[in-house]
């Protein structure tokens, strides 16, 4: 069994794009798609790959599994939520690549870390029993294990406009002094249910609790990440014309429904 798989989009989906893929390759790395991709987070990778193709770029997806060699090229990194058993299975590999990930973050590589991976990108996770588990420290956030889950649909105000999604987490996260949140909660609980913040953002690293998955219904966020990745990969960003009618309808209906 090969440990690293590089794949483009399924050929037939790529074929649906009416534009040639002549603007260059963009390499997406999905961290731990088996262990950390609960609640449809793989949809984020699919969304970015498809949109790259629709914009006229050639997406290359690296599924990075624990113990596999690190990919040669990284233009954007994705991670999702997982169960406790999943987090245990990835922590050694994550520690092995910690310096590399911190370096890429500082260089401005866009990253989207959802739920469990958002927590692991923080300073630390403190368990219900009070044990302190260090994280990567890329985002200055600390998460405490909690008995009650925060579950439900969410609307945020963000730098990318209103963002909709679905949160499902028991960890309660607090931002360090000076740490920017990803968004302000307009509906839902957010980081901790009390300070009105959701997620965290440093350079182009976005951590968030939003599943949904978050990118398909928020194309402005997806393209915001892709722009940075494409500039890094190809030196420019020349977006194509993507029909986002369905995404806009899905997005706007959730906003109207939840904010009234």
């Amino acid at each position: 069994m090969s440990e690293t798989t590089d794949q483009a989009l399924p050929g037939d989906v790529a074929a649906l794009a009416e534009v040639p893929a002549d603007k260059g390759e963009v390499h997406l790395v999905h961290l731990y798609p088996r262990e950390m991709s609960i609640y449809g987070d793989l949809g984020n990778t699919r969304c970015l790959a498809a949109r790259l193709r629709w914009h006229g770029y050639q997406p290359v997806v690296h599924d990075h599994h624990p113990g596999a060699p690190w990919p040669d090229r990284v233009d954007l990194v994705l991670g999702g939520g997982g169960q406790d058993s999943g987090q245990v299975r990835v922590q050694d590999d994550l520690a092995a690549h910690a310096d590399r990930l911190r370096e890429l973050a500082t260089e401005g590589v866009p990253m989207l870390m959802i739920c469990g991976m958002y927590q692991l990108f923080g300073e630390a996770f403190v368990t219900v029993e009070g044990r302190r588990l260090p994280g990567l420290g890329i985002l200055d956030v600390t998460t405490r294990g909690n008995e009650t889950r925060m579950i439900g649909p969410v609307v945020l105000d963000t730098d990318f406009g209103p963002v909709v999604g679905y949160e499902n987490h028991s960890g309660s996260t607090v931002l360090g002094t000076g740490q920017r949140p990803f968004g302000r909660v307009r509906h839902g609980r957010g980081n901790n249910g009390s300070d009105g913040t959701e997620g965290a953002r440093t350079h182009n690293v976005v951590g968030s609790y939003l599943h949904g998955p978050v990118l398909p219904a928020n194309p402005q966020l997806a393209d915001g990440l892709l722009e940075v990745a494409a500039r890094r990969a190809t030196g420019g960003w020349e977006p194509g014309e993507v029909d986002d009618t369905l995404a806009r309808e899905a997005h706007d209906r959730q906003v109207r429904r939840l904010l009234g």
Binding site: Y39, D41, G43, I151, P153, Y166, H211, G212
Partner: peptide, 16 residues
């Protein structure tokens, strides 16, 4: 189920 995320864990290619 209030979360529709799960639809992204299903492949719909057979409907194409």
């Amino acid at each position: 189920g209030r979360d529709v995320s799960w639809l992204y864990d299903v492949s719909f290619e057979s409907l194409r």
